[in-house]
């Protein structure tokens, strides 16, 4: 019991932050699965969702601003795809990626301009921001909710992809982009749908993330974005369950390093981030396509 209350906060934090990474990682992995594009702007969409919440909740009641933030985030994700990626559909993949980096910097600098570079305090959302005690460890309710909510959303998403027409179209597009077009799949609406789902999950992720860690700055999306991307690669980019499992592993490992730090005499806390990346290198060394990645077969 003593050991539990001592170390439970680390595990809770790990699982919860893992859930938040997972929600972002799905956006990366789905877009990659269909477009073979690493959407560098995804972390910044997450940040923009946080900022919108800060500004909207200042003038609107919370139950109006939450749905509004989700809708607006989805709209931004959709618009980014239409404006920055769609015109480059037939261009080399590198051009689209550069366009994505451009969007990322655009969003960061817009946020810098609007906020003036200062951290904005995220509003406390009733109920989920409340303080609770789990086995003697005191934390916010959002920490406990996050993993469950993440799993529910992932199950729904997988069901959507397995059982609906648009899901089938997505699977077809990710198998073979050109052929699915020839088969009469409206590729643009499939891609838009991918971005809509990705942005929706990023908006939910931002709600959970910022309720826990309440400062929103223009560059806040970078680190969670990077970690989520690593998680997606870790699990095998293109695979949704892979991204989710990868995210949980990275979130938990980060905090395990911190947990180990209390038992050793030297300070290893500064390897917190390094450890996640080290793990990535090891996994990729043995499984180059990630944990659940499809095997690449080169056709002659």
């Amino acid at each position: 019991m003593e050991w539990l209350s001592r170390n439970l906060p680390y595990l809770l934090a790990g699982i919860s932050v893992g859930g938040q990474y997972a929600l972002i990682a799905i956006g990366y992995t789905m877009v990659y699965g269909i477009l073979r594009l690493i959407n560098f702007a995804h972390g910044d969409i997450f940040m923009v969702a946080g900022l919108m919440m800060v500004y909207l909740s200042a003038s609107l009641p919370i139950y109006v601003s939450i749905p509004l933030v989700i809708v607006l985030t989805v709209l931004i994700g959709f618009t980014v795809e239409r404006v920055a990626y769609k015109p480059l559909r037939s261009a080399p993949r590198m051009s689209v990626m550069i366009s994505a980096i451009g969007v990322s910097y655009l969003l960061q600098n817009l946020a810098l301009y609007i906020t003036g570079g200062l951290a904005q305090q995220y509003p406390a959302i009733p109920w989920i921001s409340d303080q609770i005690t789990v086995f003697g460890a005191s934390t916010k309710r959002v920490t406990v909710i996050t993993p469950f909510l993440t799993i529910i959303l992932v199950v729904l998403l997988v069901a959507l992809i397995k059982n609906t027409k648009i899901g089938m179209a997505m699977r077809a597009a990710s198998k073979d982009f050109e052929t699915s077009q020839l088969m009469g799949i409206k590729i643009n609406s499939v891609i838009s749908m991918t971005f809509i789902i990705g942005s929706f999950l990023a908006a939910i992720g931002s709600l959970l993330f910022f309720s826990n860690y309440t400062g929103v700055t223009p560059t806040i999306g970078t680190m969670p974005g990077l970690k989520a991307f690593v998680a997606a690669v870790f699990g095998g980019i293109g695979s949704i369950p892979g991204a989710v499992i990868g995210a949980f592993i990275i979130g938990i490992c980060e905090n395990l390093v911190m947990m180990a730090n209390q038992y050793v005499s030297i300070d290893i806390s500064n390897f917190k981030d390094a450890f996640a990346f080290l793990l990535l290198i090891i996994i990729l060394f043995f499984k180059p396509t990630g944990l659940f990645g499809e095997k690449q077969t080169d056709k002659v």
Partner: peptide
């Protein structure tokens, strides 16, 4: 007991836990 956090870190849960455990 001294610990450090990296640039861009926003999850301070584990650091505060470490302080409590210490």
């Amino acid at each position: 007991k001294a610990e450090t956090f990296p640039e861009g870190n926003s999850d301070f849960t584990s650091y505060i836990t470490a302080a409590k455990n210490f």
